[in-house]
Design a protein around this nucleic acid. Structure first.
Lengths: 343, 343
DNA sequence: TTGAAAGCGGTACCAA
DNA sequence: TTGGTACCGCTTTCAA
């Protein structure tokens, strides 16, 4: 049916071993032969067969190393679930996954975790990490060693990566704004914006997308305050309650993150007299409960489980030369959920 | 690493050939040996290796036969796209897909299409068809022949199938109702409901879910009329325009299908004086354009591309014994989209 | 009814 | 730098 290595070898007048080496970037093939083989491979439309490759690779497994700042963060639960599903699925295709979990976004800890993954001889890396010069240098170093690096969830502009898997933060913000608008045609909006850290790339983009879209859509609104909850419940609760005290006119809340949402919920419940219109982000246990109890009206989600799954799938594709050697990014859909989704 | 056929053979004291035959339901193995092998396979946790199986199966490919009433229906575009993606992906795992397309829901045509698929010696079937005694009989006949049948998109209660891939119609309706409620707190709703056929299972469930949820949420609303558009643009346009003329008080429209939505759009544009609140179903080119142009406010979608993809994946899993021999249904998420999703 | 062996496509080792 | 070959896990054919 399809063109196989053997076909290609016959066409080139060399052995299968030589063809395999030529296509796999081994240096032990003469430049001339190699070029001839590669050219013919393209001409004949040769596509390596995953099954054959996987079977032969069983002897020396392909390790994929993953870094997640997932300790004490519910957001990563679904990402991990997706990774586990993919792990089971790609196991007999020669893929083996190692996850390094750290707590928070400390640069040194992230660097150490990456080095631990390197020691395990990983052939490919998937990192959810921060935009920091040392980290960027590390990623580029891996890339120079021909080890593909995929960025999960958090985009880092200067890091040379093979693929990005994550959400469209600006769209998430603009969709939130559109829903604010559509659900509140009858009232002047006085909005409280709650972020984790204003310096955080994702939160920044969400707020930007939110404000732009709101401005485009209507004039009768006001951003009463923008506060930081530092991804922590207590900080979020205190800051929110203070905002409510200082600005009792607040009738709507937009929170750009799931981390700390329990604090927002507590503040809303404590201050229960006024029903406010609330949108939060990311489907985790807490947001789900708050939506079920009518404390939060909408959640804007980002397919975390699919992100986990796609991370493994993309790297598997890459290691199997599936699409030449370039991968398309996977941009998660912006998913709108309400109470009824959880019933 | 994992338990292989060879390990199992050694443990049983027989040859790999015998083990393979025993596990694959071949009759040429003595009942006693077969039973012993099966028992030990479970005990040792043997899971067949896809790569090995795929490689050996290359000689006689597994055909999957698909029936779609997709001719002249945009709704199936994304389902087909998902099928194509999966087809490419599972090709080197020994899967080959044949699609029979028909127009509409005529029982005889569907039966003939299924028979054409049978002639091509398909090992598994995926059918998007109707709930009709003859069709049900046909499906049960296939099941009796140990040929797994998967139902796509349209559930058929009495047909013995191995798996269902499709949406949750009731949830789709209830989510639509919740959004009607949330976006129209300030006004008394006078609603026009537009379906394809009231007898159609999916539309019926959507309307039911819609009405139940609306009743649960508020008292100040009214279903002014429920009309049928017969999945056709012209019928839908005429019926809608007539409803608008007879009931100029209509200020909201819920349409349970994408087929004929162009007619709804035309009616809304023609009667442009009153801005009405409109929710439609299914993301196809037309709904997308109408949403972009603010004619429709929300679309409730059902991951058609993923349905196509999962159809192939599930049957591949089944043919590879991935999960014993039972498959979990894939119930598509209820996806809410607005203008901003398409920018 | 069973065992032995060929072969699916690819990689990696050893010898030339 | 190359060719030849063993091997990965499984199915199937051919002999016994």
């Amino acid at each position: 049916m399809s063109v196989t290595l053997k076909d290609l070898a016959k066409a080139c007048g060399v052995s299968v071993g030589t063809v395999s080496r030529a296509l796999n970037d081994k240096t032990e093939v003469s430049a001339k032969t190699s070029e001839r083989i590669r050219k013919l491979a393209v001409e004949l439309g040769y596509i390596p067969n995953r099954a054959g490759r996987a079977l032969s690779a069983q002897k020396n497994v392909n390790y994929i190393g993953i870094l997640l700042p997932s300790i004490n963060s519910m957001f990563f639960d679904d990402i991990k679930r997706g990774i586990e599903i993919a792990e089971r699925e790609f196991k007999d295709l020669g893929i083996c996954v190692t996850v390094e979990e750290v707590e928070g976004w400390d640069v040194r800890q992230h660097l150490e975790a990456i080095e631990r993954l390197e020691k395990r001889e990983c052939k490919a890396f998937a990192l959810c990490t921060v935009d920091d010069p040392q980290i960027v240098a590390k990623i580029n170093e891996l890339t120079d060693q021909k080890k593909p690096v995929l960025l999960i969830n958090n985009f880092i502009p200067d890091a040379r990566h093979v693929c990005f898997v994550g959400p469209d933060y600006r769209k998430s913000g603009s969709v939130a704004a559109a829903i604010f608008d559509k659900c509140n045609r009858d009232r002047h909006l006085k909005i409280l914006v709650v972020v984790g850290y204003l310096t955080h790339y994702g939160h920044h983009c969400r707020v930007e997308g939110f404000l732009n879209e709101l401005k485009r859509r209507r004039a009768d609104y006001e951003i009463v305050a923008t506060i930081e909850g530092h991804d922590r419940d207590i900080d979020t609760q205190q800051a929110t309650m203070q905002a409510f005290t200082e600005h009792p006119e607040i009738n709507a809340v937009y929170m750009t993150t799931g981390s700390g949402v329990s604090g927002l919920g507590a503040a809303l419940i404590a201050d229960g007299k006024n029903k406010r219109f609330v949108i939060a982000c990311d489907e985790i246990y807490t947001t789900r409960e708050l939506v079920k109890n009518d404390i939060i009206d909408f959640v804007i989600c980002q397919e975390p489980q699919t992100q986990g799954y796609q991370t493994i799938k993309k790297l598997h594709d890459y290691l199997n030369n599936k699409y030449g050697s370039s991968l398309e990014n996977y941009i998660a859909d912006t998913i709108v959920k309400i109470k009824n989704h959880f019933e």
